[in-house]
Simulated scan of single mutants.
Amino acid sequence: MKLASLLPALFPAGHAINRENDVLTGTATTAAGVVTVIGTANKLEVGVDHALALSACVLASTRAHPQRPIVMLVDTAGQRLARRDELLGINGCFAHLARSLEVARRRGAPLLSLVYGESVSGGFLSFGLMADRIFALPEAQVRVMDLRAMARVTKQPLEKLQALSESSPVFAPGVDNYVRMGAVEAVWEGDLAAALDAALASAVPADLRAERGLQRAGRLLARDVAAAVAAGEA
Score class of each variant (00 low, 15 high):
Met1Leu: 09
Glu20Gln: 15
Thr36Val: 12
Leu161Asp: 07
Pro12Gly: 01
Gln156Tyr: 03
Gly47Arg: 01
Thr30Lys: 07
Leu3Trp: 06
Met181His: 05
Arg216Ser: 12
His96Asn: 07
Asn42Arg: 13
Val23Asn: 04
Gly128Arg: 02
Ala51Val: 02
Val184Arg: 00
Arg84Met: 06
Ala201Asp: 09
Gln162Pro: 11
Pro169His: 06
Gly128Met: 05
Lys155Pro: 00
Thr76Val: 07
Gly92Asn: 10
Ala4Trp: 02
Arg180Cys: 05
Gly213Glu: 07
Leu111Thr: 08
Leu129Glu: 09
Leu88Glu: 10
Gly89Cys: 03
Gly14His: 03
Met72Cys: 14
Leu59Asp: 14
Lys2Cys: 06
Phe124Asn: 08
Glu20Trp: 08
Asn177Val: 02
Ile134Ser: 06
Glu86Ile: 14
Asp207Phe: 05
Gly174Val: 03
Tyr116Gln: 07
Arg107Glu: 11
Ala64Trp: 01
Phe124Gly: 13
Thr30Ala: 04
Ala226Ser: 11
Ala183Thr: 14
Glu45Arg: 13
Leu54Val: 09
Ser168Ala: 10
Thr36Tyr: 05
Gly122Ala: 15
Arg84Cys: 05
Val103Ser: 09
Val153Cys: 06
Glu185Ser: 09
Arg223His: 14
Pro173Val: 09
Ala95Gly: 09
Gly232Glu: 05
Ala194Lys: 11
Leu129Ala: 15
Ala56Ser: 04
Leu54His: 01
Gly117Tyr: 08
Asp49Ile: 09
Gly33Ile: 04
Leu10Glu: 01
Arg180Ala: 11
Val115Asn: 06
Leu208Tyr: 06
Ala193Tyr: 02
His50Gln: 15
Gly122Met: 11
Ala227Thr: 13
Ser119Leu: 12
Leu200Val: 03
Gly26Asn: 04
Ser5Ala: 10
Pro69Phe: 05
Ala136Gly: 05
Val144Phe: 14
Leu220Trp: 07
Ala172Phe: 04
Ala16Lys: 11
Gly174Asp: 06
Pro69Ile: 06
Gly89Tyr: 00
Ser168His: 12
Met72Gly: 08
Arg219Leu: 13
His50Phe: 01
Thr27Gly: 03
Leu87His: 08
Leu87Val: 14
Phe94Gly: 04
Asp146Ala: 15
Leu164Trp: 08
Glu166Cys: 13
Arg219Gln: 13
Ala203Val: 10
Val120Glu: 07
Ser100His: 04
Arg212Ile: 09
Leu10Trp: 00
Gly122Pro: 00
Thr154Arg: 10
Ile17Leu: 06
Ala230Trp: 03
Gly47Met: 00
Met150Val: 06
Ala51Phe: 02
Ile17Glu: 01
Gly182Ser: 08
Val144Leu: 14
Ser121Ala: 15
Ala136Asn: 05
Val48Ile: 11
Ile38Gly: 01
Gly190Phe: 01
His65Gly: 03
Glu189His: 02
Ala193Ser: 15
Leu129Ser: 09
Ala226Phe: 03
His96Phe: 03
Ala210Asp: 15
Ser167Val: 15
Ile134Leu: 10
Ala9Val: 00
Val48Asn: 10
Leu129Lys: 10
Val187Ile: 10
Ala51Glu: 04
Pro157Lys: 00
Asp22Tyr: 15
Arg148Trp: 05
Ala227Trp: 04
Val74Arg: 02
Arg143His: 12
Val142Ser: 05
Gly232Gln: 07
Ala198Tyr: 04
Asn42Lys: 11
Tyr116Ser: 12
Ala131Cys: 08
